[in-house]
Amino acid sequence: MQTDPKANVARRDVGGMVTAAVFILVAVIALWDTTRMVDSDSFVFPRTVAIAMIAFCVLLIAWNLIRPESGNGGVPAPGASTVRRVCLVAAMLVSTALMPWLGFIASGLMAFLSIMVIAMYDPWTRFRKLVYPLVCTAFVVGFYFLFAELLLVPLPVGSLFE
């Protein structure tokens, strides 16, 4: 995201190289999967792309080894909270995964409330404690009706409630 050119001077782009190595692995797996395809229509394209990808990755790694200063890996912003990041992703994943059982409203509320807590930097005044959850419930229920009733999206009801 934010790259500070000065901080990167003479720093080897280790992240970029490691990622390139991972991409080589991805391409190799893809190549291996194409061997099981019979129709040439299906494998010509992915095989070409995978080979090109390996070539580009090898070039990138080689380039970095020869000219280490060319790297431009990102630098984490100071004071950023990794815990909150992980929590956000976890909250989204967990509530989505629970949706078939809890149904849309319950899991939506769960996601909304937990992410609200994760993203909260201001102090929890009594007003906020009272109003925020109310707004959030209204939002989830409102969206439920917009999607389920107006746009006719069959949102999961939840197998626990059937």
Binding site: A111, I115, M116, M120, Y121, Y132
Partner: peptide
Amino acid sequence: PKAMLVPTVAF
């Protein structure tokens, strides 16, 4: 406020 924006967008 951020505490409302993030969950709204995520949702």
